[in-house]
Design a protein around this nucleic acid. Structure first.
Lengths: 337, 337
DNA sequence: CCGCAAATTGACAGCGCTGTCATTTCTGTC
DNA sequence: GACAGAAATGACAGCGCTGTCAATTTGCGG
């Protein structure tokens, strides 16, 4: 029926344990035997049973991707990350489970317990804002389960992937300054997200660099959602001196700004320049297409998962790798009126 | 260390096999024993090992959700379905794996083989357009793995969930007719998707019902993507007699139409009414907000998975349940000019 | 050619559960 | 109250793999 380890062993003339060693890439196997075993596995189309490996061994070859299910961040972002993690899993014969958690719930770490004690996941990939949830990190540590983070706030001692968002935001705002804008507003994201802080910091850096004083009225709070972008924009439009450019901390809010601009009869970019952050698919679907910063989400998911697996497989220590950003100049920004 | 079945058995004073029976909801256990065992499980916080169950038994308590990774349909749609399937899994203590497949690849059914022979998935949830891929269905049948489909073309003998898309499309177009439109165009989706056929059929029904002759020039081919919507719209705008309304087979293409309308200087809905299908989050983020048909994706994912699990657990035969649609009238449609 | 440490390999038990089949305990019946 | 048949329970092996530790082979200096 099913080809088992034992069958491969018999075909090769070695013990099952040796085949097991080859399967697990242990070093203490003579190269010649290794080749023979590998050849037999290949020709017999051997596929190890994850259940048996999980039951007998200490590893499950399972990683879980956790995400906050409350609403944020945008589902396209998560979907891309998920695909990236799956890419990495394919490459190293790991399987992936996805697990939404509701951070608002008091005992949301229960989910982690289930994942760890039921499925014995070997590691976990964390997406924002889970990356910096103290109770979650604590629980993972208690379980002894390593994790990789995507865009974590805390860089020290963390493995995963990040981007220099502050620098990216700065570059974006400098682009606005170069277009002659002086009254530049910023819509901040959810407070405890690293992304919000970095993007705000980059905004401030750019203003300071250009010698533009920071006007508190021009910095309004949003929540990363389209609707919050609309509200924030209306707030800005109510100011005595309207900004000539608005930098929203993500594309969703930027879309909201453009919506509110339409509502108000402002023409983008003639009357108002708008830019966002993330370069979600929506960015090019807006009219006019949105100037934003491209974040390679799928790549980031893949890299984070690869770092995690390197760690799990004892290949290297696991790093926090940095990916480059890219400024996407489109038609939503133009010279100041 | 870990609480095992045996521990529960000892605590209750029964054999491990009896505890196993309770765990698996077998009927041949006296109610009183069942209660005692259940109580012990609860108080000892017993959690069965999926690996051991999978290895020893014939069931894995795993379902897989398959989707086409080429690009379609929109990731937000899939994400919602995924959340729905996860809801159902939570309810019945199943686990879920997600598996993107590339239908274009010649041997994309390999993925299924891996899922089935490696992980022994008990069942599979199919999303469009996988629901009607003959090679895939064939492979599943060979493996003896049941599946539930979301919006399958072939209703007969299929379990899962569907919506009366034809009727919904008809209602949508009738809405346009009621607004006085006579020159109504339709942008068709990818040819072999059921959604494309139904929506086209509903469009034709409505026209016929209103006594409007079908003009082949007004039916153009799209691919469900934003870009294809733009192209299709340009094509329609090149016609001698411009349509006064365009019904795109999904929201993405409708967004493309609105983009092209902007490009062409047409004002929606004054010069042109536009409507889509699906009610993705984007629909309310467009300017003006898009008239469309709401499809309860998450609910559909959940229902399909529940039907599958009912079947797997021997509870009922597994049905094809129908969910209601809802017409979302927004500002992108108005009286004909 | 021998002895010893290092490199390879193997024997065996057991991970936590369920399938099979045997056994015990109830039912209701006359 | 004895008995057939149904209901409930248990004994035991084994799912396919890996951890532990022992056995064997190899390489090398003398």
């Amino acid at each position: 029926m099913r080809v088992r380890l034992e069958d491969v062993a018999r075909a090769t003339g070695v013990s099952p344990k040796t085949v097991s060693r080859v399967l697990n890439e242990e070093s203490s196997v003579k190269e010649s035997t290794r080749q023979r075993v590998l050849a037999a596995m290949e020709s017999m189309n051997y596929r190890p049973s994850p259940a048996a490996r999980g039951l007998a061994g200490s590893r499950s070859f399972l990683v879980a991707m956790l995400y906050d299910n409350n609403n944020n961040p945008a589902s396209t972002y998560l979907a891309e990350i998920q695909d990236g993690v799956l890419d990495a899993c394919d490459a190293h014969r790991y399987s992936m489970m996805v697990s939404p958690v509701r951070m608002r719930d008091k005992d949301f770490t229960r989910r982690v317990d289930a994942l760890v004690s039921d499925h014995h996941v070997d590691g976990v990939v964390l997406t924002p804002p889970l990356t910096d949830s103290a109770p979650l990190l604590q629980r993972l540590k208690e379980h002894g389960v390593p994790h990789a983070s995507i865009s974590p706030v805390q860089h020290k001692g963390t493995i995963g992937v990040c981007m220099d968002e502050q620098q990216a935001a700065r570059a974006l705002v400098e682009h606005l300054v170069a277009l002659g804008h002086r009254r530049i507003a910023h819509i901040v994201g959810i407070a405890d997200h690293g992304a919000s802080r970095w993007r705000l910091a980059g905004y401030k850096d750019a203003l300071a660099g250009a010698g533009i004083p920071l006007d508190p009225d021009y910095v309004v709070q949003g929540e990363f959602t389209f609707g919050s972008g609309v509200i924030a924009a209306r707030q800005l439009f109510a100011l005595p001196a309207l900004p000539t450019a608005i930098f929203a901390a993500n594309d969703d809010m930027a879309a909201g700004v453009m919506w509110a601009a339409n509502e108000r009869g402002l023409k983008v970019p003639r009357d108002l320049s708008v830019c966002g952050f993330d370069d979600t698919p929506m960015a090019v679907q807006l009219w006019p297409p949105l100037t934003t910063v491209r974040q390679p989400s799928r790549e980031m998911g893949k890299l984070a998962a690869l770092q995690l697996m390197d760690l799990l497989r004892g290949r290297g220590p696991g790093l926090l790798v940095q990916v480059p950003y890219e400024l996407m100049q489109r038609e939503s920004t133009a010279a100041a009126p």
